[in-house]
């Protein structure tokens, strides 16, 4: 462990803003890259199910 207290950990020796901003942005971008295709998958499956339903009704 490199830090004596939580305060020192958040402060990062005066560089807290830079370190936390970098890690925050990176994590946000990583999450978006995973979450957005998951939502897209759900909406794709739903719209395809509707489409197939319409097509089978027409026949």
């Amino acid at each position: 462990m490199q830090f004596d207290s939580w305060l020192a950990f958040f402060n990062m020796g005066g560089h807290g803003l830079y370190v936390w901003l970098s890690f925050g942005i990176a994590l946000l971008v990583l999450m978006l890259n995973i979450v957005s295709p998951l939502f897209q998958f759900k909406s794709t499956v739903q719209s395809l199910a509707k489409k197939y339903q319409r097509e089978s009704n027409r026949q």
């Binding site: 462990m1 490199q2 950990f9 990062m12 020796g13 005066g14 560089h15 370190v19 990176a26």
Partner: peptide, 23 residues
């Protein structure tokens, strides 16, 4: 963030390397 030692010149801002280089 917690266990890697800090850089003797850059201090803790050096930890940014752990996302900068991989990305």
């Amino acid at each position: 963030l917690l266990f890697a030692p800090q850089d003797y010149q850059q201090g803790n801002s050096f930890r940014i390397i752990y996302i900068h280089v991989p990305s």
